[in-house]
């Protein structure tokens, strides 16, 4: 995408530069020349070129978007995330009654996790940059985000929708365990 964008930018720059470089000698007036100019500039570069590029790009984006959708599967784990000013509370479908505060949310590694995101007060956004895109927490709605951590470890998470003075410090951590660690986490006594 970046390479394509750069190529288009360079094309436009070169065309502009040439417009000033060309001497006046080559220019001819008349309706035929006008017709030809319209065909090249408007129908060719203005219509056909963007239509083709954009059709490809849109289709690509939608295919990728389809792949990222949360679909039901056998080993999907569900974690609830409730945002509030300026903390997150996480609940676990596999360990009812268990809730952890903002540090850390826990999830298994190597298994897809559906995060059910909602908000207790204002609109928040749940974002773990290394695991998935962001999804908003809207009061009165529950949004499902599919994340999957390939490796055990800690992943930094952020609130990503301005929500008042404490916004800059609105962070959390997702701790991904291996299978044994996840079982141990679920088996822990509820404090």
């Amino acid at each position: 995408m970046f390479a394509g964008a750069s190529a288009i930018l360079v094309l436009v720059m070169v065309l502009l530069w040439l417009a000033f470089r060309r001497g006046p000698a080559v220019r001819k007036g008349g309706p035929a020349a006008e017709e030809r100019d319209e065909r090249i500039w408007i129908k060719g570069l203005g219509l056909a070129f963007p239509l083709a590029t954009l059709a490809a790009l849109t289709a690509y984006g939608l295919v990728v978007g389809e792949r990222l959708l949360p679909r039901p599967g056998p080993d999907v784990v569900t974690v609830g995330a409730e945002g509030r000013q300026w903390a997150w509370t996480f609940t676990y479908a596999d360990a009812p009654g268990r809730a952890t505060g903002g540090h850390p949310a826990t999830s298994p590694a190597g298994r897809p996790v559906d995060v059910a995101i909602t908000s207790a007060d204002v609109i928040q956004s749940f974002w773990v940059p290394r695991l998935a895109g962001k999804l908003d927490a809207v009061p009165g709605h529950v949004n499902i985000l599919r994340i999957e951590a390939w490796e055990p470890g800690d992943y930094a998470g952020l609130g990503a929708e301005f929500n008042g003075p404490g916004y800059a410090g609105h962070r959390f951590t997702v701790r991904a365990h291996d299978a044994a660690g996840w079982e141990a986490f679920l088996a822990e006594e509820t404090p």
Binding site: A55, L62, G65, E66, L69, P70, R71, I144
Partner: peptide
């Protein structure tokens, strides 16, 4: 045509 093409392929309610 362009903006309504998604009805043919994309997932409806997720």
């Amino acid at each position: 045509v362009w903006t309504l093409t998604p009805v043919t392929a994309t997932t409806t309610c997720h």
